[in-house]
Deep mutational scan, measured.
Amino acid sequence: MKTQEELTEIVRDHFSDMGEAATLYVQVYESSLESLVGGVIFEDGRHYTFVYENEDLVYE
């Protein structure tokens, strides 16, 4: 099982292909040891929320 830090790095790496991230945040109260819930805000103003669970990243 991966730590939240490892899950955060996986998510950060995925979003790095989409541009320069200004902020990546984790909603600790919705996350667990198995999943990471949060969002990313890019330098150009785009904002996505995400759920990373079971090696699957879903974002909108």
Rank of each mutant, 00 (worst) to 15 (best):
M1C: 15
M1R: 12
K2H: 06
K2V: 06
K2R: 11
K2L: 10
K2D: 03
K2C: 14
T3F: 06
T3P: 03
T3S: 09
Q4A: 08
Q4F: 13
Q4W: 12
E5C: 13
E5W: 10
E6R: 07
E6P: 03
L7G: 02
T8L: 15
E9P: 02
E9Q: 14
I10T: 04
I10A: 05
I10Q: 04
I10W: 08
V11G: 02
V11M: 05
R12F: 08
D13F: 13
D13T: 14
H14M: 14
F15H: 02
S16K: 14
D17W: 14
D17P: 10
M18P: 03
M18F: 10
G19P: 04
G19T: 05
G19W: 09
G19D: 04
E20K: 13
E20L: 12
A21S: 09
A21P: 13
T23F: 14
T23P: 04
L24S: 01
Y25L: 05
Y25S: 03
Q27Y: 15
V28H: 12
Y29R: 00
S31T: 06
S31Q: 11
S32Y: 08
S32W: 09
L33N: 12
L33C: 12
L33T: 14
L33K: 13
L33H: 08
L33E: 07
L36R: 00
V37P: 00
V37W: 10
G38R: 02
G38Q: 03
G39F: 15
G39D: 07
I41Y: 09
F42C: 08
F42I: 01
D44V: 08
G45Q: 01
G45K: 01
R46L: 04
R46F: 06
R46G: 02
R46E: 01
H47N: 03
Y48E: 00
Y48F: 11
Y48M: 04
T49H: 11
T49E: 02
F50A: 00
V51W: 10
V51N: 02
V51K: 10
Y52M: 05
Y52Q: 00
Y52G: 00
Y52D: 00
E53Y: 11
N54Q: 06
N54Y: 07
E55W: 10
D56N: 15
D56A: 14
L57K: 02
L57W: 06
L57Q: 02
L57T: 01
L57E: 02
V58K: 12
V58R: 13
Y59D: 02
Y59C: 11
Y59M: 08
Y59F: 12
E60R: 09
E60F: 13
